[in-house]
Computed example of a mutant assay.
Amino acid sequence: MAAPLSPGAFVRALRREGVSVTEHGGWQTHNRNHKGAWGPVHGVMLHHTAGRDSLAFCRSGHAPLPGPLCTGLLAKDGTLHLIGYGRANHAGNGSAAVLAAVRGERPLPSPGPDAVDGNARFYGFEIENLGDGRDPYPTAQLDAADRLSTAICRAHGWSEASVIGHGEWTRRKVDPSFSMAALRGRVAAGLSSAPSGPAPGRPAPVHEPFPGAAFFEPGRRSALVTAVGRRLVAEGCGRYAVGPGPVWGEADLRSYAAWQRKLGYSGAEADGVPGRASWDRLHVPKL
């Protein structure tokens, strides 16, 4: 439970976490606050748009449901477009039991009757996706969803339990069409370390850029492989009998898979082959 962040503090928190932000004119005062106060706020609610080219629609809405329809729209490339700040028509009415669980940072119950106005209690973000199970969420987009959720939770002192999906709020909805439990796991991992982006006025930490998944072929010899292994050991994910060493092998794959699982990935997404999102969270020092 908290007063909403000021628009300036909100943007600074996002950028400290490494979120790429585009500000659209007048977003700081574009809201539905004339319908009632926004706040105190209790958490972050995520949605999918169920359509494409959604920026104008999310900003303006339509006659039955005027805009803004969210605080920001998260594009496929991972850019967060800020279009409103304050009460937005994104959540609608939802479960009092779910709101109580979010406030108490407890596991979520199944949503009960729609009895509470969520527009007044949550930051809301639309993620551009058809939601049909076939439209992919690019890695950059999911990574940005993790980062923006982490940024707001960090700024308010909330845990990952303060992030929910629209489908967890009301029986009327099913979005977003990805695992919220996995996202909350990644938010928890993000909150356990320092912000991923540079603090205002300070130089960014110097880390190795992602060399691409193809770099990590079996038998690859490089000082970077050793550096990756040392970071995995430091994160409690080392699965080495000896080492780590400079040659990429099975022990490195097992160790990196443990790191991916720590971030909340599972199945084929935790195969031990580095991807950009997990790499950016590992912070391998510049060689």
Rank of each mutant, 00 (worst) to 15 (best):
L287A: 15
V21R: 03
S255C: 10
G78H: 03
L183C: 03
P68W: 01
A37M: 11
A37F: 00
V19Q: 13
I83H: 10
A213W: 06
A2S: 15
D146R: 15
V284H: 01
R254F: 01
P64F: 02
A234T: 09
S179R: 02
H34Q: 07
L82S: 11
E269N: 07
G118S: 09
A101P: 02
G67H: 07
G8A: 14
L80D: 06
E250F: 00
G84N: 03
P274I: 13
P7L: 04
R221V: 15
V44K: 03
G39F: 12
A161F: 14
K262A: 14
L14D: 04
A213N: 02
R276P: 12
L99D: 13
K286M: 13
H48S: 00
A234F: 01
P66R: 06
P211N: 05
H207M: 05
A268N: 03
A144V: 11
P107W: 01
P109V: 11
K76M: 10
L253C: 02
R221D: 11
E250C: 00
P211A: 12
A268I: 02
H156L: 00
A227G: 09
V225A: 06
W248Q: 03
L232S: 05
P285M: 09
T226G: 04
G185S: 11
V273A: 00
I83N: 02
L73S: 07
H166A: 15
P211S: 05
P64G: 12
G43H: 04
R12S: 15
P66M: 04
A50P: 00
R87S: 10
P4D: 05
H156P: 09
A199C: 03
P203C: 06
P109C: 07
W259F: 13
G43P: 03
H24K: 02
G51M: 15
G264H: 02
N31A: 13
A161K: 09
V44N: 11
A144E: 09
I83Q: 00
D146S: 01
S149T: 05
Y240Q: 04
G219K: 07
G118Q: 09
R261E: 12
R184P: 04
A100V: 05
N31T: 11
G78N: 08
A151H: 10
G167L: 11
E208C: 03
R154W: 07
A101W: 07
R230P: 04
A2P: 13
I164V: 14
H42N: 13
W158K: 08
G190P: 03
W27F: 12
G264W: 06
A96C: 04
G165A: 06
C58Q: 14
R281D: 05
G78Y: 06
L73W: 09
C237W: 03
H62L: 12
N129F: 08
P113Q: 14
R172F: 01
T79K: 00
D53N: 15
W259V: 07
T150V: 12
D132K: 14
R261L: 00
G165H: 01
G219C: 12
M180L: 14
S278T: 10
D53Y: 12
N33V: 10
A234H: 02
D53C: 10
L232W: 04
S110V: 03
P176C: 06
G157L: 03
S179W: 12
A227M: 13
A214W: 01
T49Y: 00
G236V: 06
N89V: 09
R87H: 08
L46H: 08
V163K: 04
R172T: 12
R12I: 15
G267R: 05
I152V: 15
